[in-house]
């Protein structure tokens, strides 16, 4: 799926971010300019915690949780 074997893909509101594998999910979320407080991470439909070390080729979906109404 991902051409770059050393990266992990984060999906958020229709956007894709490729981040280096090996860092924590929390650091990766900050690196792409999102707040770890404002998203939930899911993989294969299950929620995961953001202390996870990212593996190459993984795909993680970030669900935005903050609404403004």
């Amino acid at each position: 799926m991902d051409p770059e074997r050393n990266s992990t893909t984060l999906l958020h509101r229709g956007r894709r971010f490729d981040v280096p594998a090996g860092s924590t999910l929390r650091d990766a979320i900050r690196k792409v300019g999102l707040s770890p407080e404002a998203v939930l991470a899911t993989q294969n439909g299950e929620l995961i915690t953001d202390d996870r070390i990212l593996k190459p080729g993984e795909e993680i979906r970030l669900v935005a949780v903050i609404s403004g109404g």
Binding site: S35, P36, A38, I66, G68, G69
Partner: peptide, 25 residues
């Protein structure tokens, strides 16, 4: 519903929530 009400775009609520989340981090 995952989409937002179209009128919430740029609302002050979103701004203050963002500020607070930066503190929370």
């Amino acid at each position: 519903i995952y989409e937002e009400c179209p009128f919430s775009v740029g609302s002050s609520t979103l701004y203050y929530k963002d500020v607070l989340n930066r503190l929370e981090e």
